[in-house]
Amino acid sequence: MSMRDEILRVATELYTLRGYRGVSFNDIAEVLGITTTSIHYHFKNKVGLAKQALDEYAAGVEHEIRAIWTDQNTTLARKMQASLDFNRRSYFRFNRQGEEGRVWSLLSRFANELDAFPPEFRARIGAFRAEVQACARHGLEIATARGEYRAEVLRTDMSRMLAQSFLYAGYIARDGGNFEAVERNYRLVMDLLKRSYGTG
């Protein structure tokens, strides 16, 4: 990795764990064994670094979600399972020592601190959420075309529910105390979808 990428990697992890206000350039420099001058050289200021971290993190997650939900060859149930697995990997990356309920998403962390950022942060997070919902809608369209669900499902808010299972998994885990709460929510959404609109 280049030094710029290393700075971004460490900043993203620290921001996710501590929030924007809880991380300084000194904290990042200490982890990497560099001076803060190097961070300023690559990112100028703290807002610039946070914006780049958010942009790259959001783009990476969007890429993963798009690949899951636009796959023409998997059932909706498999798409939901793949989304759940993605959340599980992220969760245990930041909760591996048993610290149940830690935030594991930079997007969720920054969404809770929007008052600290300029307006483009809100816009980027909003665009991310819209992209996840569009992907869920696309996945539902594929499932309907495959005959898994009746066509009227596309005239409901089910794609929003599917997207929210992914987008708000962090809050569900925090409020439920562990990742099992996320798994239960996924099962409930899929059960509701199947009972209401399933063809089998």
Results as ranks from 00 to 15, higher is better:
M1R: 09
M1D: 09
S2T: 15
R4G: 02
E6R: 15
L8I: 13
L8V: 12
R9I: 09
V10M: 09
T12M: 04
L17R: 15
R18L: 12
R18H: 15
R18D: 09
Y20L: 08
G22I: 07
V23C: 11
S24A: 09
S24Y: 03
S24L: 07
F25S: 04
F25C: 05
F25I: 04
I28C: 08
A29H: 08
L32G: 09
G33Y: 09
T35K: 09
T36W: 03
S38Y: 11
S38Q: 15
H40T: 13
H40E: 09
K44P: 00
N45A: 03
N45T: 02
V47M: 03
L49Y: 00
A50L: 02
A50D: 00
K51Q: 07
K51V: 00
A53F: 05
A53W: 05
L54C: 05
E56K: 13
E56L: 15
Y57G: 00
Y57P: 01
A58H: 08
A59W: 04
A59M: 10
A59Q: 13
G60T: 05
G60L: 07
V61R: 14
E62Q: 11
H63F: 11
E64T: 12
I65D: 00
R66W: 05
I68T: 06
I68M: 05
W69T: 09
W69C: 13
W69D: 04
Q72Y: 03
N73C: 04
T74L: 11
T74F: 03
T75C: 01
T75H: 00
Q81N: 06
A82S: 12
A82R: 15
L84G: 00
L84E: 02
D85K: 04
F86T: 03
N87K: 13
N87L: 15
R88K: 15
R89G: 08
Y91T: 08
F92V: 04
F92D: 07
R93N: 05
R93S: 07
E99A: 13
G101R: 02
G101E: 04
S108N: 12
S108C: 10
F110H: 08
F110S: 08
N112S: 15
N112D: 14
L114A: 07
A116G: 01
F117W: 01
F117N: 03
F117G: 07
P119R: 03
F128L: 03
R129V: 00
V132C: 06
Q133R: 14
Q133A: 11
A136T: 10
H138L: 12
H138Y: 14
G139M: 06
G139I: 04
G139H: 02
L140H: 11
A143C: 05
A143R: 05
T144K: 08
A145K: 13
Y149W: 07
E152R: 12
E152L: 03
T156E: 08
D157M: 06
D157F: 06
M158L: 06
M158C: 05
S159I: 03
S159R: 02
R160F: 11
A163E: 08
Q164D: 14
Q164N: 14
F166V: 10
Y168L: 14
Y171K: 11
I172G: 00
D175L: 12
G177Y: 01
N178F: 01
E180F: 08
E180R: 13
E183I: 13
R184I: 06
R184T: 07
L188M: 12
V189P: 02
V189L: 01
M190A: 08
D191A: 13
L192M: 13
L192D: 04
L193V: 02
K194T: 14
R195L: 08
T199F: 01
G200K: 11
